[in-house]
Structure formats: structure tokens, C-alpha cells
Design a protein around this nucleic acid. Structure first.
Length: 918
RNA sequence: GCCGGGAUGGCGGAAUCGGUAGACGCAGCGGAUUCAAAAUCCGCCGCUGGUAACAGUGUGGGGGUUCGAGUCCCCCUCCCGGCACCA
């Protein structure tokens, strides 16, 4: 055995062996239970970052653990290859996005392979390849014909200088990122997925996902935002535009009757409405602005700035009176109509009824513009005052109606019911369930994406591309210049013939949101080579994904879209005909298959699973963060330095190149802008993949953010060196000993109460406790840092075990074999090499727990007096409560505090503590 | 602004069901080894007082429940993620 731990050598050898034996090829057939372990695929941005290393190591630990326990594991990998950064790189460097993307993929694949992940590379896919996106286009055309996809107008960020649509990310403080021009909102036609049709199922489906983090389910539920309220109308009469002002009834001219619809969850406050507010894009606002230049200017101002909700919600609330009046649906009173910059056209009806007395935002608005505030809810012992908003004004749980005529005295629910009934009788309203969730607009005015398979024909309208003409191939030789979609300039792409009438037609040049590609890739991994359709029978066999791993930042959008897409594919019959109808699939997910005992178990077939949800278990990992360092010049411009170029001496951070100090700027998410990314490649080159893997798993639990630390990496590497050395010395001892290599102790031998020395018994107990804990930490708790800590403790204990007799050497052998196997999912290369030394020719197997080694005959309890720790107590493991209490009271510590008095109370928690209250 | 999460020694973190706060690792300090250094090995290590035994105190801040609270409840502060065209 080699004396030194040489990670580069053993990692190269292990990876070569795995490649040669195709060790990670998932079998599509066979009767071993399956385990589908999936990490979110990367965007091929250039090179791997630490977040990738962390994500894929977590997945790899789970995949390798399950493989060791006998599962048929599938862990695939692919590339989320369409997207904006490729276009940005093209603008910056003049390289076609396709070329840039494929080069990045090649480099990153090499990096992933160097980390030794147990990936089945035969299933690799890239979303920018026609053999992938053709099926997305195919599904689009099916859904378009079914009406699940439809076209409507939607608002986008428009850069008036670059003449292009901007992503929210490209709008910096209301201005275009390249031109610096003030961004405008502009309405353009887009295609939408009718995700709201599935809102209820997406909400109730969350209850069938016990393997998802509560917080992700809560976020999704809030995002879907189901609320029961009342949709109601404020009738109005408008005369011809010439006389729009005044009471709105108009003298002379044509009278137009209309209804302004709003949605409210507080119909009980309807009698307190003092104005209604409409969005700037609302038809009524447009109408009123026609001959009101001041209002038109205000509407134009509202249309400036980005469409991002965070911007909308934090800006100053502004409004303007339209001069129009509507009538209250119950009282017939005239109510003024305002335009409000805070009213969203895309939610509800694009208009809200304002009750300043009982809505905080309306209250502020009314105060600002001097609009009336009318109290219609009161709470006992509370006094209403116009001076300031008070919490109870908006509380619907405690109030009763006042100043509301026949509704006075009613509580929230009774008032809503009564008012809804009266509105319904007049045909001016009804109860309605409203979702916050909006339909998913997928049109992007960008080049590097999946073409939307629609042909525009003057005679036939929007015609979906027939299946036999798919895929609509995206030309890959295009270089975008940042001004508009370059596809529009490609006559060879745009010009085509209408599939219906054969006349000249134009191809749609918008591409799809890249979220569409990432919404179904998990299913395609089951059958990436299937040329006859989107999915084949293998998808049904592998799905749902047993374990999905990815960043918490995807908690809502990606995970919701993928759940939605899964249901679309189900209803398209892609998982088998029996699942087509909603809700007719298997009712609830089966529990996780339990690990196989002994690794064989042909009968432990995977139980039937629900096909309604794509991901049975979800793990959301935290970010990787690192220190930032900078220097500031006279003009206040900061230059950021990479942590790799900085060293800390005596608590002062110095730049390595000039030895001068730099400012420490705090710990932040690794990013290009702060130049604090640590390149995994440098780490692998210096310490090897196992050290990189060990450190990322040890430094923090998966769900928390992970702080980068060079010293921590050293520590991880040191542990692996020590592990290597321990095995080496053990093997040297074995070679020198007269007896052949020791076999590990099995059960009885060393464990016999009289036979074995205490040190041996204690170590074996710790060993088997550790086996139990590590399995539990990996499989149930998914907390790998404590699993590693437990093995470290075991190794520390082993180091203290002296002796060279046969029994000691056998226990040492048993302990080392188990420790190496327990670490194998985390540091597979070194484990492979050490196990080959400890057990030549044997395959790595998960160690079994020896229950008899866990038995203890005496245990230690802590002794508290008044809840404070005052001593400890040794009692037989079998002692009952009375015996423990007697022993506790008799103890020296108890006597000291009791001072001869009887205790007030004694609390005995068997196996834990005794608390004496004096 | 809205939704979700977090805060524990000098640092990363542990404490799994309300029961020994600080496991494990890093840094630091002391020692061994060495001509010396690196590497390695051994020991110490929350804070305050004390030579020590020990005592007090301590999980972002304030209050509460309990024999007992890092953990449960109420209020507050700060930090992070998401907000529909970044992926």
C-alpha cells in the first residue's frame, strides 16, 4: 500500500474504473427498486461555480448511498442551454450564442467528471438541441389546439432607444441597462399557458407532498393565493366623449351604459366605499384621458418604469381623478373614479373599490388626496379617529358593521353573505373565488430560445405548425446585437407557407420562456433517445423523481411550472391513458421505498406511485457565500479582489501581489460583481475532488448558506490524510504480525460481557451507534455535516485504542472497514482505494448494525436541582422511576441542596435526568 | 411593500420529541519532535471572578408559559431568498 495519500492518482484511477465498468448506468429494466435522484441542471454559463459543486455533491451523496443499499439508481445530467447570458456574451464578444453555449457545455462536463459524480452520462441532454425542443413544440401545438395555450396582450419593459424588450434584470433603476433610456411599459401580443385552470389542483396537490419542505409549500400556496370574495359592478352611464365631465350622465349626445367590475375580499365594507381606483391601462382611464391632457400625462407617467412587482409595490402611491362617476351598486350614490399607479391591470379586474376607513393603503391615499373616509366597521372599546391608521381598522375577525343600513350589527361572514345576496338579486355581483396566480406568459422577443411553432397567415390567422413539419429549427449561426430580435431579419426563417391554405405566411419569431424547457426535462431523462414522441413508457416507470435537489431561489417559479407541466403531460396521456383525466390517477404518493436489507431483495418492487406530481421529495440547498475585499479610489470607485488573491496576516487582509492592505467588505453570495467566487477547479487541482466534496458537505447543513473558508478546506484535507495514514499503519501492522490479516469481529466474540475489555466494548458500541447515526443522517435527516462529524469522532476514539493483540486488531479492522464505507458516498475515490486495501476484491457495501453491540448495562443521568445542573448519577439501565428517584435523593449533591428538608417535587425523565425542586 | 427563512464562542456549526448549550472542525495558546521550519503528535480553549475547588453568567433584543426554553407563545431589530422577462 502506498504510504502517502495522493488524491490525483487515486481519483484518476477510480474514475477510470467507473467509466470502464459503466458503474453508474441506470438499468431501464430489472426488478431492483428504483431511485431517481435529480439535481437541477445547470445553465452552461462558462465554468462550474461552488453552488454547482455543492448541489451536485448533495445529489451524489444520496445517489451513492442508495446504490450501496441496493437500489437501481438513476442520476442524470443535462444543460439548461437557452437563455439571456448567451445573447449577452454574443453582444460582448461577437460569438454566436450556440457556439458559446456548446463550448461551455464541453468545459463544464469535464469539470463535473473530475468531481467523480455518479452520473449516467448516456442520458445527457441539452435543451437547445432540436431533438429535445421539437417535443416541446409538439406539445405546444397540441395545447394550442386544446385552448390551454392562448394569445392575449401583455405589458413588457420597452427600451425606446434600443427598440427592444427588456428583461426585468435589464432594467436598472427604471432605465435600460445598455441605452440608459427611461424604460416604458408597452403592450404586445403574447402566448399564455392557462395555468390558472390548474390553480386548484396545484394548491391541493401540495398536501400530497410530505417530502417537501414546509416553507416551499407555504410559499407556493401564498403565490397561488386563493381567496374567496365578491366580484361586483359599479354601473355607470357615459355620454359621448364631448361631455364626459360632470356627473357622468351627460346632457345630450349618445349615452353609453356600462359596468365597472371590481373584486374584493371585503364586501362587508361595501357601504364604506368612497371612491374606486382603476389601473392606468384600464379602458375607462383611456376613455377619460381622451380629452383630458392632464390625465393623459399622468397615465403616461404611470406607464413609465419597470413592470416588476417589487418596483410597483415600493413606489410612491399616486393617483388622479378621472372626473368620471360610477354609481354604488346598492345605494345608487355617485362614486368618483380615480386612476391609481398602484392598481395592477393584471390582477382581478384591474380596478379596486376603495374603503379608506378599513384598508391601510386606501387610508393613506385618501388622506393624501383629501378623499372622504367613512367608518363602517366598529370594534368594541376602540375609537375610530381620522388622524392615524390603527391596526384594528382592517381586522375582519373582530368587527361589526355600522353606518351600513340594514347590514348594521352583522359580523364579517354574515355581512358578506347578505351583501353578496343583494348584489346577486340585482345582477350586479356574485361570490367568486379568485387566485393571485396569473396565466403564464411565455413569449420572449429573443433569439436564443425555442421557437414558438406558430405560422401567421393573413387568411387563416395563427396556425400551429403541423407535427410532421416539426421541429421548427432555430438557426444557430446568428449573432444578436442587442437591438430587437435578430430572427426578424432572417427572411429564410420568417418566410414560409401557411399549412392550411398554402398561401404565403410569416413564421412567429418570438421564442419560449426558458422555464418551459426546464419544466419537463426531468421526464425526458427517462427516455432521452426516444425519437417517436415526447416520452415513452420508461417515463412512467422512473417517475416521480424520488429526490430533487436545487437552490431555494427556485421555490416558486420553476417548481410551480414543473408541477403544472407534469399535469399537462399527464392530461395529454403521456404517462399512460389511465391517467389522462385529472384526479383519476393514484390518489396519493406511496411512501418512499424502504432500503433493501442485504442488497438483494428481488421482491421489494417499487410500490405504485402517484403520477400527479413530478417530485416526491425536495431538498432546497442554501447559497455559497464568501468574504469580499476591495479598494476604493479617490472617485469612490471600488475595485474588488478575489479571495484567492488575498491573504490575512495578523488579522489584516493584504493583497498578495503588492502586500498592501485591502478593505474587508463582508460575506456575500459568490458573484461576478463582487469578484468573490472561488474557482472549484483550483481547489480540485490542489487538494483533489474528495477534499472539495468533503468540505462542502462538512461546513454547513445543506439547507443553510455555506461560508467559504480556505482554512476549512485544509481541515477537510487533513482529515483525509489522517484516515489514509490510519489505514496504512493498520495494514503495516497486519503485514508484520504473525497471524494473517485480521477479519472483522462479528457479533458475539468481542461483545461478550465478561470476555471483552471495556475499551473494546466501548469502541464497538460507538462504532455501531455511528453506523446507525450516519445512515439516519444521510437518509432521513439529509444532514451530512453531522454524519461526517460522527465518523470523525469514531476515528478519534479509534486513535485512542492501544494494543496489538488479535482482538484489538480485529476491532480496528472492523472499525476501519465501516468508517471507509460510511464515508464512501461523500468521498468516493479515497473510499474506493482504502476499501480495496482493507478487503481486496470486495465491493463497497453499507455496513450492518450489530444490535448486540449497542446494549449498555449502566447509564448516566444528569441531576438537576431547581433546573440547574448539580451533578450526575450512574444507575442500572433497567432501573425504574422509583429506584432512580431514591438514588437521586440519596446522592451527595441532592443532600447538599436539600439541607435535610423534603423536596417540593421530583421530576424523573428515564434515560435523561432527575430534577429536584426544593 | 408583500410572501418565506435566518440570527448560538474569535469563526463555520452541534444540540433530531421542551431535558448536560457549544459535539465536530477552523483559528488561537501551551508542549513534544526538529539544527530550524513545514508537516505531524499531545494538551488547553464561551464570558466574568477565583491559584484552584467552585460560583455567577450566557443562544439578536424585550416579555410570557414551564420543574426545566437555543427549542413553544407574543412583540421588536437586523440580515438573506422570491416577487411572474436572471437562471
Amino acid at each position: 500500500m502506498q504510504e502517502k495519500y495522493l488524491p490525483q492518482d487515486i481519483e484518476r484511477a477510480a474514475q477510470a474504473k467507473w467509466a470502464h465498468t459503466q458503474a453508474f448506468r441506470a438499468a431501464d429494466d430489472g426488478d431492483r427498486p428504483r431511485y431517481y435522484c435529480l439535481s437541477m441542471f445547470p445553465y452552461p454559463s462558462g465554468k462550474l461555480h461552488m453552488g454547482h459543486v455543492r448541489n451536485y455533491t448533495i445529489g451524489d451523496v444520496l445517489a451513492r448511498y442508495h446504490a450501496m443499499r441496493g437500489f437501481n439508481v438513476m442520476q442524470p445530467m443535462g444543460w439548461d442551454a437557452f437563455g439571456l447570458p448567451a445573447e449577452n456574451a454574443a453582444i460582448a464578444n461577437g460569438v454566436p450564442p450556440a457556439k458559446w453555449t456548446y463550448a461551455n457545455i464541453d468545459h463544464m462536463r469535464t469539470q463535473l467528471q473530475a468531481l467523480g459524480f455518479a452520473i449516467d452520462w448516456s442520458r445527457e441532454l441539452a435543451t437547445c438541441k432540436p431533438d429535445y425542443y421539437r417535443w416541446e413544440q409538439w406539445l405546444f401545438t397540441r395545447l394550442f389546439e386544446k385552448g390551454v395555450i392562448y394569445k392575449k396582450m401583455a405589458t413588457v419593459n420597452w427600451d425606446p432607444v434600443d427598440q427592444t424588450v427588456l428583461a426585468n434584470e435589464q432594467v436598472i433603476e427604471g432605465r435600460g441597462w445598455r441605452s440608459g433610456a427611461l424604460v416604458e411599459k408597452r403592450d404586445i401580443p403574447m402566448y399564455f399557458f392557462r395555468i390558472t385552470q390548474y390553480a386548484d389542483e396545484l394548491l391541493t396537490g401540495l398536501d400530497t407532498l410530505p417530502g417537501w419542505p414546509e416553507r416551499v409549500k407555504t410559499m407556493q400556496a401564498n403565490w397561488i393565493g386563493k381567496s374567496v370574495g365578491v366580484r361586483l359592478a359599479f354601473p355607470y352611464q357615459l355620454s359621448s366623449p364631448a361631455s364626459l365631465e360632470g356627473e357622468g350622465r351627460g346632457e345630450g349626445g349618445e349615452v353609453e351604459n356600462g359596468q365597472l367590475w371590481v373584486f374584493t375580499t371585503r364586501a362587508d365594507t361595501l357601504m364604506g366605499v368612497t371612491f374606486v381606483a382603476v389601473a392606468a391601462e384600464h379602458p375607462l382611464a383611456t376613455r377619460a384621458a381622451a380629452n383630458n391632457p392632464e390625465l393623459a400625462a399622468f397615465i403616461a407617467e404611470c406607464k413609465q418604469g419597470s413592470v416588476a412587482e417589487a418596483d410597483m409595490a415600493t413606489m410612491e402611491k399616486k393617483g388622479m381623478d378621472t372626473g368620471l362617476k360610477v354609481t354604488h351598486p346598492l345605494t345608487g350614490e355617485f362614486i368618483p373614479v380615480w386612476v391609481g399607479n398602484y392598481v395592477l391591470m393584471s390582477y382581478g379586474e384591474g380596478a379596486v373599490m376603495a374603503v379608506p376607513a378599513h384598508d391601510e393603503r386606501d387610508f393613506g391615499f385618501a388622506q393624501k388626496y383629501g378623499l372622504p373616509i367613512k367608518q363602517v366597521i366598529s370594534v368594541e372599546n376602540e375609537t375610530f379617529s381620522l388622524d392615524a391608521w390603527q391596526e384594528w381598522y382592517g381586522d375582519k375577525t373582530r368587527g361589526r358593521c355600522v353606518n351600513s343600513g340594514k347590514y348594521d350589527g352583522l359580523g364579517y361572514e354574515a355581512a358578506v353573505d347578505a351583501i353578496a345576496a343583494d348584489l346577486a338579486a340585482k345582477g350586479l355581483g356574485e361570490k367568486k373565488t379568485q387566485f393571485r396566480l396569473r396565466d403564464w406568459g411565455i413569449s420572449r422577443q429573443r433569439y436564443w430560445g425555442c421557437p414558438i411553432p406558430i405560422i401567421h397567415c393573413d387568411a387563416c390567422g395563427d396556425v400551429p405548425v403541423p407535427a410532421e413539419q416539426l421541429p421548427v429549427v432555430l438557426p444557430e449561426d446568428v449573432v444578436p446585437d442587442g437591438a430587437g430580435n435578430p430572427l426578424n431579419k432572417r427572411a429564410d426563417f420568417v418566410n414560409c407557407t401557411c399549412p392550411k391554405c398554402g398561401g404565403a405566411a410569416r413564421r412567429e419569431t418570438d421564442t419560449m420562456d426558458t422555464f418551459v424547457e426546464s419544466s419537463w426535462y426531468y421526464a425526458r431523462y427517462a427516455c432521452p433517445d426516444f425519437a417517436g414522441g415526447m416520452l415513452d413508457g420508461r417515463a412512467k416507470q422512473w417517475l416521480p423523481v424520488d429526490q430533487y435537489i436545487g437552490g431555494i431561489e427556485h421555490a416558486i417559479l420553476h417548481l410551480l411550472y414543473a408541477r403544472f407541466f407534469h399535469k399537462l403531460m399527464r392530461d395529454e396521456g403521456l404517462f399512460g391513458a389511465e391517467h389522462i383525466v385529472q384526479g383519476r390517477g393514484v390518489a396519493s404518493p406511496s411512501p418512499q421505498p424502504s432500503p433493501l436489507e442485504g442488497g438483494g431483495a428481488n421482491d421489494a418492487l417499487r410500490a405504485p406511485k402517484a403520477i400527479d406530481e413530478p417530485f416526491a421529495n425536495l431538498l432546497t440547498q442554501g447559497m455559497v457565500i464568501a468574504d469580499t475585499y476591495y479598494r476604493e479610489d479617490a472617485a469612490g470607485k471600488k475595485t474588488w479582489f478575489n479571495p484567492a488573491d488575498v491573504e490575512t496576516r495578523d488579522g489584516v487582509a493584504l493583497l498578495k501581489s503588492d502586500g498592501q492592505p485591502v478593505v474587508v467588505g463582508g460575506t456575500e453570495k459568490m458573484s461576478k460583481s463582487k469578484n468573490n467566487g472561488v474557482d472549484p477547479q483550483a481547489l480540485i487541482d490542489q487538494y483533489g475532488a474528495d477534499t472539495a466534496r468533503l468540505f462542502t458537505m462538512f461546513a454547513a447543513p445543506p439547507e443553510q448558506s455555506l461560508e467559504w473558508s480556505d482554512a476549512g478546506v485544509e481541515g477537510a484535507h487533513r482529515f483525509l490524510k489522517r484516515l489514509w495514514k490510519t489505514v496504512y499503519e493498520h495494514m503495516q501492522g497486519a503485514a508484520a504480525s504473525p497471524s494473517p490479516q485480521p477479519s472483522p469481529l462479528e457479533g458475539e466474540g468481542a461483545n461478550d460481557a465478561q470476555g471483552a475489555p471495556k475499551a473494546i466494548k466501548d469502541l464497538r458500541r460507538q462504532l455501531h451507534q455511528t453506523i446507525q447515526k450516519v445512515g439516519d443522517d444521510i437518509e432521513r435527516r439529509k444532514q451530512f455535516n453531522t454524519a461526517i462529524a460522527a465518523v470523525m469522532e469514531l476515528m478519534n476514539a479509534l486513535a485512542k485504542l492501544d494494543g496489538d493483540d488479535a482482538t484489538t486488531r480485529s476491532v480496528r479492522q472492523e472499525t476501519l472497514e465501516a468508517a471507509v464505507a460510511l464515508l464512501a458516498p461523500i468521498v468516493p475515490h479515497i473510499a474506493e482505494a482504502l476499501y480495496a486495501e482493507l478487503r481486496p476484491g470486495a465491493a463497497l457495501a453499507w455496513p450492518a448494525v450489530d444490535e448486540s453491540a449497542l446494549v449498555q448495562d449502566e447509564i448516566e443521568l444528569m441531576l438537576q436541582v431547581n433546573g440547574k445542573l448539580r451533578g450526575s448519577l450512574r444507575v442500572p439501565a433497567a432501573a425504574d422511576k422509583a429506584a432512580i428517584e431514591a438514588a437521586a435523593l440519596a446522592s451527595e449533591a441532592a443532600q447538599k441542596y436539600l439541607e435535610g428538608q423534603p423536596p417540593k417535587k421530583v421530576v424523573v425523565v428515564p434515560g435523561r435526568l432527575v430534577n429536584i425542586v426544593v
